[in-house]
Design a protein around this nucleic acid. Sequence first.
DNA 1: GGGCTCATGTAAGTGGTTACATGATTAT
DNA 2: ATAATCATGTAACCACTTACATGAGCCC
Lengths: 171, 171
Amino acid sequence: MELGKTAYVILGMLRMGKRTGYDIKSLVDVSTRFFWAASYGQIYPELKRLEEAGLIAGEAEATGGRRRRAYSLTKKGEAALRGWLTSGGPLHIELRHEGVLRLFFSDELSKRERRALVRAVRAEHERLRDELAAIRPAASDTTAGAPLEVLEFGIAYQDFVIDWCSRLEHS
Amino acid sequence: MELGKTAYVILGMLRMGKRTGYDIKSLVDVSTRFFWAASYGQIYPELKRLEEAGLIAGEAEATGGRRRRAYSLTKKGEAALRGWLTSGGPLHIELRHEGVLRLFFSDELSKRERRALVRAVRAEHERLRDELAAIRPAASDTTAGAPLEVLEFGIAYQDFVIDWCSRLEHS
DNA sequence: GGGCTCATGTAAGTGGTTACATGATTAT
DNA sequence: ATAATCATGTAACCACTTACATGAGCCC
């Protein structure tokens, strides 16, 4: 009964309280998405599997007409989450960065072209940093601890890449 | 005839000279792999497709018994590579980092457990940095320009994450 | 009435990994 | 001799994305 990493994203989100698939997706989009994204196409089927496996419990909330199914963590689910968090297993770390890839092959370009490419990479990371910075105010109100620390790290990481780009541009 | 990014990895590697699929894989494993990995299962089929499309030309080199097929870039392939390098299209940037993900959900852990997790993340990035550092001597002999700059960036990036982990550990 | 948000799903496709099969050549 | 490296491939599988379909409730 090996779980995929995205299953743990769901378990982790449910630990904070009862949530629908829609809720989870919304949360992911303003938090883990920057280092672990998830789409509806993953979330809904995974919720079914996790319920079948007894790690979460769904409850239909008939609020009038609109159907919604909110899930909560079971004991078993909590244990699974904890087990994953504390297991010493290898950490899946994967980066796919087309900007750096292009830069790697950029020796055949002219200086102008190369500089344009670096600028494009920088612009992308500035966009990312702005997105993260926009989340911060709301996050520092409602959240604290680890999620906020990770958010700060995300911003610092974007700044690090932006700095590297700036140095490349002026050399 | 939209090409996947991995196709451009192949084109980029072939621009440096005639190469077999095996050669390309070996090169990827000591260079782009850290920001764009590729496996045989992708490379060999992609080589066939690129040849059919006329972007590369394969030549069977009968060196006695061992069969090998070395490819080189065609004019069309060079143009495609250049086009990709200079196109302003959106840059695919994706990170999947299980370490940061665990940290994000680490609030329920004890201080000891959390620290152990941070240490594990740091260890992983130290391993990565060592791998990159091991490549450097050979790279700075044979290579120069962009690939070397990207390698230096990779090392600096690992150091950045390692530093963040260290700060987390001692707080 | 119209547009936005809440809400749930699925089908088709993509991009990629893993594991295996095969065999020649070279180094120890 | 035998282990490592060179070399080519494929089949099965996996994780994930995209696009679509559907519909209720809420605000202007």
